Computed example of a mutant assay.
Amino acid sequence: MTNDALSYSVTPFVHIRRDLHEIPEIGFQENKTQAYLLDYMNSLSGKHIEVKTWKTGILVRVQGLEPKKTIGYRTDIDGLPVSEESGLSFPSKHEGMMHACGHDFHMSIALGVLTYFSQNQPQDNLLFVFQPAEEGPGGAKPMLESEEFLAWKPDQMIALHIAPELPVGTIATKTGLLFANTSELFIDLKGKGGHAAYPHQANDMVVAASHFVTQLQAIVARNVSPLDSAVVTIGKITGGTKQNIIAENARLEGTIRTLSIEAMERIKSRIENIARGIEESFECNTWIDYGANYCQVYNSEELTESFIHFAKNSPHVTFQSCEKAMTGEDFGYFLEEIPGFMFWLGVESEHGLHSSKLNPNEEAIGCAIRLLIDYLKSE
């Protein structure tokens, strides 16, 4: 335990979290968020800090006193197209948008840690990565490949994600696979519309889409090994224009989650085979778009074990092990190139991630800031 971390005031970052909660923006449109973050960063003292922007993201380099390595800390900054129903006194001011995945928490925690090291120069270099578009279309991969990031490429990368189901002050992670491979799924069908009274003269895409959905549900049960894990979910169906018109068009929107790359490839192959069958059966055309694809989050064994040991001995948090999850996170792209890890931060909310009623406990902000200050100093 370090006395300065324990006594470090985290109250300002609770207020910052509330400010950020009011201005959620979708991926690569986080202009107000970026402006807010830059304005705050400009208020920090310390000649050992350098700031660069990349699209709507930000990179902040903290020069170490006697650096032997550079440690990267990533936070995501975008919101979700969710209409807020949290009942908070500081709700989103952007209609139809909400920080329903806790990225307002993530940003305020990162600013808390950054502020500390702006006042207390670290031994090693630190790189704070404020990444846009985690919720889509995916900001990690292009940011990782950018000239701005490569110029300051760290030797290690770490990140956290809030966990509504865990008590405040609880940290959870594991070595190896933590989050799944994920892919968006969009399927468009086009047939022949017509009058509801003459179905034999049309090719009904509502019926075709319904058959498609039913067949998709057999993929995991019959095409993925029982010893593997996978999910194919259709979350949205649209089709037709009026109750007495046979639908000429339909659209399916969903997601694919797998714990292995092989299962992802197998599922996509089966979806394409089913699409060809639907085209023959219903005399229609289909188009498949996999949208954003996120690779698995795979935690480095050595670094994760070291962090787990540290967390178990920290006065700021309680550690518990966890299982791998079918959650998707584009932080996995950083971990493909740079060793590191991600961990869960308990925030004890009755409602879960992506819920319009998500209400994380703000006491978790201080727990995370103090833990990360001590951890980064120990490294």
Rank of each mutant, 00 (worst) to 15 (best):
residue 343 F to Q: 09
residue 52 K to I: 10
residue 227 L to T: 13
residue 210 S to R: 06
residue 60 V to Y: 05
residue 57 G to K: 01
residue 53 T to N: 04
residue 2 T to S: 13
residue 245 I to S: 14
residue 48 H to G: 04
residue 321 S to I: 03
residue 70 T to P: 03
residue 201 Q to V: 05
residue 353 L to S: 02
residue 14 V to D: 07
residue 347 V to L: 04
residue 44 L to W: 13
residue 256 I to M: 10
residue 11 T to E: 15
residue 258 T to E: 03
residue 280 E to A: 14
residue 368 A to L: 04
residue 223 N to V: 08
residue 372 L to W: 15
residue 220 V to D: 00
residue 65 L to T: 10
residue 258 T to V: 07
residue 360 P to T: 09
residue 134 E to Y: 00
residue 79 G to S: 00
residue 290 Y to I: 11
residue 157 M to P: 11
residue 3 N to A: 14
residue 323 E to M: 12
residue 84 E to Q: 04
residue 6 L to W: 11
residue 216 L to A: 08
residue 231 V to E: 07
residue 21 H to E: 08
residue 295 C to A: 08
residue 263 A to P: 07
residue 23 I to V: 07
residue 277 G to L: 07
residue 260 S to K: 14
residue 4 D to T: 13
residue 358 L to K: 08
residue 360 P to E: 03
residue 97 M to G: 02
residue 335 L to M: 10
residue 277 G to H: 10
residue 319 F to G: 12
residue 72 G to P: 02
residue 313 N to I: 01
residue 205 M to P: 02
residue 254 G to M: 06
residue 339 P to W: 05
residue 57 G to F: 02
residue 365 I to A: 01
residue 148 E to T: 14
residue 327 T to G: 14
residue 117 F to E: 03
residue 55 K to M: 05
residue 274 I to P: 03
residue 257 R to K: 04
residue 330 D to F: 01
residue 241 T to R: 13
residue 361 N to W: 03
residue 13 F to P: 09
residue 53 T to H: 04
residue 183 S to I: 06
residue 114 L to S: 01
residue 69 K to R: 11
residue 352 G to T: 02
residue 200 H to V: 08
residue 259 L to Q: 11
residue 156 Q to C: 14
residue 69 K to Q: 13
